[in-house]
Amino acid sequence: MKARLLVGLLVVLPLVLAAAPPKKTRAVHPQVDTQEACDVCHREVTPEVVEAWYQSRHGLMNVKCFVCHGTVGPEFVRRAPVSRCVGCHNDKVDSLANPFFKGKDCFSCHAGHELNPHKIGGGK
């Protein structure tokens, strides 16, 4: 039962966390039998996403897909929870407590895979 609850939560969490309108994609990444880096496949299946990441600061610094999105299978999260930002950006995450940011997470402002600093997009 406990396990089931947990799985349920993991499936739902990433989608409804979104303040921006989420796309109609499944939140679970299929299990893949690979030890290669994510971008090897995703260069083929979602080239625009990989390119946006690659050209971003995260791409330049090699902050790779799994840092934000978790790994494959049920561990995958489509929209990263702030707990995945806190490792490097803990002061920024702390600032979310400011009433100005009520109802927002990091990606409400730092949109897409470009994650440009201080450019509003994607959210309402």
Binding site: T34, Q35, E36, A37, C38, F66, T71, E75
Partner: peptide, 9 residues
């Protein structure tokens, strides 16, 4: 778990 799926081999 993230890293065994990333460049592990």
């Amino acid at each position: 778990k993230e890293l065994v799926h990333a460049n592990a081999e």
